[in-house]
């Protein structure tokens, strides 16, 4: 019964998401797709921040590197298949994370935050200040990838609804894969590292290798989000790698609940909704966002994902008083 109450809201939300494009306008379909992409991005960051205790402040680098990989591998006139451009862009992001991880994972705490930021800024300026990717203007994607299966075109990415369903399927896939991963011994080792790295070393774990493994995986997943983003918008800009972007996704994780998988998803929906709402309300929408984040951090230390547990506690307490 308890299990039912926990999974029911998830199933209901999934049902709504499945039928959503049939009722909403294209604008909203794209908005929800953008939100789900942010959710994947935030889940990947939460692997580091929430599960391993690595506060990366440069996670946008991997998001952007994958997006640029797609754009740069699509010269005018070329038509790429998603079956290779998707894995290649994800691997490019993972490879960047592997190389950067070798350096940044030798630092801890505040130094780790600064060094991840520094590497991300390097990547930002690489695309911003050179002609490699169109400079500060970025570049348009010459053509969207195609998706054929057994000679049939199964999805056309000129159609936002098709992108929406691909994004939704991948969000579910990522969520379920990570849920499985975190329940394995590997997941327990990550949590052990977050909780007490010294003890993990004393028990015989070479924690550097595990941190590098998860840093690479998280980079690859951020790359998946970057790929989907460029698929949706059709262009890339250096802003995708900027530190604002790294900061935003960190906010999404904090807002939703660090160290949970559903938290980043809730955080993404709240973040985008708030952004849309506040943008329509005032010019300085960041101000509204800032106040909201401060309120959540003070009132809900566990983020939005902690609300059900709080409500349950309140109810139990209420029942005891009766």
């Amino acid at each position: 019964m308890a299990r039912f109450f926990r999974t029911f809201p998830l199933i209901a939300a999934l049902a709504v998401l499945l039928v959503f494009p049939m009722f909403g306008q294209i604008f909203y379909t794209e908005l929800v797709a953008k939100t789900l992409i942010l959710a994947i991005f935030a889940m990947s960051l939460d692997l580091l921040v929430g599960y391993t205790g690595l506060v990366s402040f440069g996670h946008a680098a991997y998001f952007g590197i994958a997006a640029y990989t797609v754009a740069l591998l699509t010269p005018a006139g070329a038509v790429n298949s998603i079956w290779w451009i998707l894995p290649v862009s994800v691997l490019a992001a993972a490879l960047a994370a592997l190389v950067i991880g070798v350096f940044v994972l030798r630092t801890k705490g505040i130094y780790f935050i600064m060094v991840t930021l520094a590497f991300a800024q390097m990547a930002f300026f690489l695309f911003h200040d050179t002609d490699l990717g169109g400079g500060s203007d970025g570049i348009f994607l010459n053509s969207k990838p195609t998706a054929h299966l057994f000679g049939h075109e199964i999805l056309t990415f000129e159609n936002p609804t098709h992108i929406y369903y691909l994004v939704l399927a991948l969000t579910i896939f990522v969520y379920l894969s990570l849920r499985w991963l975190l329940k394995t011994s590997f997941g327990h080792i990550l949590i052990g590292i977050r909780s007490n790295e010294h003890r993990m070393v004393a028990m015989g774990y070479n924690t550097f290798n595990y941190k590098l493994a998860i840093f690479t995986m998280a980079g690859g997943l951020a790359g998946l989000a970057g790929f989907l983003q460029v698929l949706l918008t059709g262009f890339v800009t250096p802003e995708m790698l900027a530190w604002h972007q790294s900061g935003n996704v960190l906010l999404v994780v904090i807002l939703g609940g660090i160290g949970t998988l559903i938290g980043p998803v809730l955080g993404a929906f709240t973040f985008v909704a708030l952004q849309e709402f506040a943008q329509g309300l005032v010019d300085r929408w960041q101000l509204v966002m800032g106040i909201f984040v401060i309120l959540v951090v003070f009132a809900l230390p566990g983020g939005l994902a902690a609300i059900p547990a709080r409500v349950r506690r309140r109810l139990v307490k209420g029942a005891q008083h009766d």
Binding site: I191, S195, N196, R199, A202
Partner: peptide, 12 residues
């Protein structure tokens, strides 16, 4: 080795 200050994983 064991530690002077208890070094367990409290959430497990």
């Amino acid at each position: 080795r064991s530690f002077q200050r208890t070094n367990i994983f409290p959430t497990f």
